[in-house]
Design a protein around this nucleic acid. Structure first.
Lengths: 202, 202
DNA sequence: CTTGAAAGTTCTCTTAATGTTCTCTACTAT
DNA sequence: ATAGTAGAGAACATTAAGAGAACTTTCAAG
């Protein structure tokens, strides 16, 4: 945590860019490329910042030669963010996503969200598999088509797509063709929240 | 946080804001940002409150430089966690998962990991869909069967399952029956990392 | 090997953003 | 009336960020 404290906003941005570039290209960027990416037209300015990162221990530079910027072992610990290097599509270069160079994992506030582990295949056709974690925003009302955590008779829980049939009937729809939708009296069903995220570990 | 009671309402609000900001950004807010968040237009006023929190032992400030506000050691740092309520299986009550009541969103250290956004369907049969984010552990070596980010000829990237055919040949296998595996000379392929996580937003 | 372009290095000058200090004001409770 | 809380805002100081020119080094092509 202390480590990040010593970097300015721009140093941090530059480090993120350099880091992404190394993954995307397998070699270091030129000062001009760094400048272009960060909107700086002066190589001198870019050079100075790279030097600052080297002096602060975040970057190394090969002794001679072009494109010699490398990551040092010392990488800032930024709580709850990861560098978002870009978009990967087979057969293409990884392309940086303009304006998005960080993945913020702390965007879900714990007072409004909770997590659940999924068991079963009811939502597998949309990529929510057995064992996945889902992030739910706590709310009691859902829109037609939302994926909800629904409590039936205050007891049985399920993660399904919510369909409103009428004022007093709702349908909970699995995303698995082998399973049937279920229709309930609205009064039996309590919406606990709405799906906002999913994640899986490997 | 027992001593939080000795703060005024506003000091308390400010402390909460600063704590949240530090988690999301990994560095301190500017006085202007604090002011904007709490509806105070005067930097001078904000500064005075920050000083009060420093004097009362809740905050620290780096000796020099901007964005230097930090939490004092006695203040618990907010971690990027969500309550993990339990396991959800259709038709059953949500059951608590023994020993796991929190989902730690910050488990991937940024010095070893980066994220990528997936484009395409090459891994869709294992639930990695177009638009998903994947979390990659940086490493240059993979085991047979690992899902890897591979750079071919320092240029083309791909996320596929790694199969080692021989000492100098590897195969990259999609998880989509409509696509063919590709075989490469090992010297053409640079492993940038191995898949450790996946996530999706709704 | 030579040459020219690209990339890197050093330096000076400038501007904008952020932090600090201070004075004045208003409201509420004692 | 006084003290505490809370706010505005201005002037000043410090930090970060930027341009660009001149020079040096590296590399690739001929």
């Amino acid at each position: 945590m202390e480590n990040i404290a010593t970097l300015t906003v721009l140093e941090n941005s530059m480090l993120r860019f350099i880091r992404g570039y190394l993954v995307r290209h397998g070699q270091g960027p030129t000062l001009t490329e760094i400048g272009k990416a960060l909107g700086i037209s002066s190589k001198g300015t870019v050079h100075r910042y790279v030097q600052a990162l080297v002096e602060k221990g975040y970057l190394l530079h090969t002794e001679r030669g072009w494109r010699g910027i490398r990551l040092a072992d010392r990488i800032p610990h930024t709580h709850a963010t990861l560098p978002l290097v870009g978009r990967i599509a087979a057969g293409r270069p990884i392309e940086a996503i303009p304006g998005r160079d960080e993945l913020n994992l702390a965007e879900y506030s714990p007072d409004e969200h909770f997590a659940l582990e999924v068991q079963g295949d009811s939502m597998c056709e949309i990529g929510i598999l057995d064992g996945d974690l889902v992030i739910i925003k706590s709310q009691a009302v859902a829109k037609d088509g939302d994926i909800v955590v629904a409590l039936v008779d205050e007891q049985e829980a399920t993660l399904k797509r919510f369909r409103k049939l009428s004022a007093d009937k709702i349908k909970l729809v699995p995303e698995n063709s082998q399973m049937q939708p279920m229709v309930y009296e609205a009064s039996r069903v309590q919406i606990q929240g709405v799906l906002v995220g999913q994640m899986r570990r490997y």
